[in-house]
Amino acid sequence: MNFAMVVHGAPYSSEACLSALKFARAVLESGHSINRVFFYHDGVHTANSLIAPPQDEAPISEQWQEFGIGNNIELIACIASCLRRGVMDETEANRYEKSGSNLASGFTISGLGQLIDASISADRVVTFGV
């Protein structure tokens, strides 16, 4: 069965981001697939490569990157949510003349259409809200 996932929570501010990661791992371990993880609202903070938690705390953002890259799962951060919250790839940073970009590897910035497309094509959609 194919799952679409939606994440609304930022790492550390909300447990939703961590719960979603645990669910995503369980989906694959159970032999199912994930068509896309869509980060919306504060969930886009997960895609901020400048997050540097204390060493004795779980690096949730890095764990998401490893999960996405290692399993070839699309991690999409909503562009409108990203721009409001200062998460940018190089293209957007240049477009808005910002001092730098900070999108973590493994994440792609894209539009809301990706949420709708994933929801339509998946067998199940599961949202991790805040």
Partner: peptide, 18 residues
Amino acid sequence: SINAQEGLDALLMGSAFT
């Protein structure tokens, strides 16, 4: 919070698809 506004944005986008 911006949750309501971002929800409406998603609904308007969704209505273009299905």
